[in-house]
Design a protein around this nucleic acid. Structure first.
Length: 595
RNA sequence: GCCCCCGUAGCUCAGGGGAUAGAGCACUGCCCUCCGGAGGCAGUGGCGCAGGUUCGAAUCCUGCCGGGGGCACCA
């Protein structure tokens, strides 16, 4: 799969056409980083990190610095541009082990770093920061690499060989996907794309309960609605119940004459199917498609619950009490033991969870990721315990991500929602109100730890107040510019024909630094399971681009001829567009060429 | 009572132990010989409180205060 992520529902047009690209050009040297690192004067932050590490190793080797070599050296982009292109705090970290003042360690490393090609200067600042500035050409090469790599720019191998099962939404087919589930649809799918972009093998999974009592309540509600009666006390009352009941009756005209038991069963089967079709449809419109829709009923039918309970019993964690069968989860840190089989002989939902987890592991997944709403926070303890009871390590095989709730706001007032009154905003309503792109972006740009207020007015606005439009506009603006270049007959040529040292303006340097940052943003966002970092980065990149655009004329005016600067700037613009496009794709949002 | 998440600018939110804590909106004042002004520049304004760890804390630890969500032989 060559692309960064799975395609969107409507695939946007490809990258700006650039003639003469050589895909092999993006390859980097291998082997000893000190030798092969800067072939062609390329320096990326990743390479700088490796370089600093090897300089530390070399110093340790020579005996001038008595420290253990760190596994990884952190380099970061300083806020203040005067602090160079990249900064590292290794000297501060190593000072204690070396038994020498941080600045002394920094000076020592700086001297070696200054010898490296592609590095223009190394300054020791403050308590012992190492501020590194690349040569103009080395920085400029990053733009060429980004364009050349195209959709692959930003991909890393941070999660190579990880096989992960990503479970999210998992709303039961008793009603539409509510706003909480919608948040997970946006964040979960984006996380899936991020993990894929960092080399993981990802399977998206939707687990639905089709075996429990709430499905029976759903069926009884449909029967009641079909007969024009009010919903049962414990039933479902939304307006969609009436819609589905009518569609079932329309499909099976004789259904209302059937005996009560048979009638409810027919409503159950047809109702669940109709509801699920609607759910899948609204998710697809949202750009989210699952690899597997997993039915709880298949676990029951296949005897998986019996088997997993036998396994747990064999491991000595099961006991009988008060007529029920229990898992001693308190042995693994849970607050209280949990029942597997109720005293009436029915299995609990928790028993199915045990079987479901075992099933995922049996299917070969290294990591089981489950995304839950904050209202399920109490579930984490018992889930970790069941993983331990089955002999796995929760820290390694399980990740439960909790997402806080979403409040909707309109006209500055919180939207009061009531299931009874039928004023619940669900996935399809949100898409209708603000569009799929804005909905996905709005939900994915906030940290899941944060409760968010989502303003429907703001996100439906087609102005720069709306962050998704701010980012999309930057892409459209660049697309327009590149079209203009084509109209003027300006040939971009291949990367070898570009003089990257032309990009020396401070705003160009800022933009290059931002473009160079993208792969690290993708990696960090994937590792921290935080897709919102990509969105925030894109907003910053868009702003950096607008500032560049304001200061640096790209296309020739009037009778002027295109120059080497023109060509270099067009490549920089194209690189920016590539990153905006790849970043938006990670979030499942379109990057329009025109708006 | 116990557990989980969150208190950062007037508002909505970023900030992986680092340098002068950021963005958008709002407010004030600027920039159109301008490739998309759906832009840009400048200004106003902030880490809930108290301790602790550290060379260094918005970030890690403890306690309090405030907001939200959980604590079923429900799903």
């Amino acid at each position: 799969m060559p692309d960064l992520c799975r395609p969107l529902v409507a695939t946007p047009a490809g990258p700006p056409r650039v003639t003469g690209c050589d895909p092999a050009h993006g390859a980097h040297g291998e082997g000893n980083p000190l030798v092969g690192l800067f072939y062609d004067h390329r320096v990326t932050p990743e390479q700088l990190s490796a370089l600093v590490r090897s300089v530390v190793a070399a110093a340790a080797e020579r005996g001038v610095l008595d420290v253990p070599v760190p596994d990884e050296v952190v380099v970061e982009r300083p806020r203040n541009p005067e602090h160079g292109d990249y900064a590292t705090t290794v000297a501060l970290k190593l000072a204690k082990a070396a038994g020498r003042p941080p600045r002394e360690v920094a000076e020592l490393l700086a001297a070696d770093l200054r010898e490296q090609p592609g590095i223009a200067r190394v300054d020791v600042a403050g308590p012992g920061f190492l501020n590194v500035t690349f040569t103009q050409g080395a920085l400029g090469q990053i733009a060429l690499d980004a364009v050349t790599a195209g959709e692959a720019y930003g991909r890393t191998d941070a999660h190579a060989s990880l096989k992960v099962n990503l479970e999210f939404v998992s709303a039961n087919p008793t009603g539409p996907v509510h706003i909480g589930g919608t948040r997970w649809a946006a964040v979960g799918d984006a996380l899936g794309r991020l993990l894929t972009a960092t080399g993981a093998e990802v399977s998206r999974e939707y687990y639905f309960n089709d075996a429990g009592s709430q499905i029976d309540r759903f069926a009884r509600s449909l029967v009641a609605a079909a007969h024009g009666e009010p919903a049962p006390e414990d039933g479902y009352a939304g307006s969609y119940i009436g819609d589905i009941a009518r569609s079932v009756v329309a499909a099976e005209p004789g259904i209302l004459e059937l005996p009560a038991d048979e009638q409810q069963e027919r409503f159950r089967v047809a109702g669940v199917e109709a509801m699920f079709t609607e759910i899948k449809g609204s998710l697809a419109e949202f750009g989210v498609v699952f690899d597997t829709y997993f039915s709880e009923a298949t676990l029951h039918a296949g005897g998986a619950l019996e088997r997993v309970i036998d396994t747990l019993r064999g491991r000595g964690h099961v006991y009988e009490a008060d007529g029920a069968t229990w898992l001693r989860t308190t042995d693994f840190g849970d607050d209280k033991d949990r029942p597997l089989v109720k005293s009436d002989g029915d299995y609990t939902y928790f028993a199915a969870d045990c079987a479901y987890y075992q099933d995922k592991r049996d299917r070969g997944f290294d990591k089981v990721v489950i995304m839950l709403g904050a209202d399920h926070a109490g579930y984490v303890g018992r889930y970790k315990a069941l993983v331990s009871a089955l002999g796995d390590d929760p820290a390694q095989h399980l990740e439960i991500l909790l997402g806080q709730l979403v409040n909707l706001v309109r006209d500055g007032q919180p939207l009061k929602m009531s299931k009874r009154a039928g004023t619940v905003i669900n996935l399809a309503d949100l898409v209708e109100a603000v569009g799929a792109d804005a909905a996905r972006y709005a939900l994915a740009r906030a940290s899941v730890d944060q409760q968010i207020d989502l303003d429907l007015d703001l996100w439906s606005r087609q102005t720069s107040d709306n962050p998704v439009f701010y980012v999309q506009y930057a892409h459209a603006r660049i697309s327009s510019l590149l079209r203009g270049a084509g109209d003027l007959g300006i040939a971009l040529g291949g990367p070898d024909a570009v003089d990257a040292t032309q990009l020396a303006h401070p705003r160009e340097t800022d933009l290059l630094r931002a473009v160079a940052e993208f792969p690290r943003v993708v990696t960090a966002a994937a590792e921290l399971r935080a897709p919102h970092r990509v969105a925030r980065y894109l907003e910053e990149l868009a702003g950096t681009y607008h500032r560049f655009y304001d200061s640096c004329r790209v296309l020739p005016r009037g009778d002027e001829e295109a120059t080497a600067t023109t060509v270099a700037r067009l490549w920089l613009c194209s690189a920016t567009a590539t990153v905006l496009r790849n970043g938006l794709t990670v979030l499942g949002v379109h990057a329009p060429e025109r708006m």
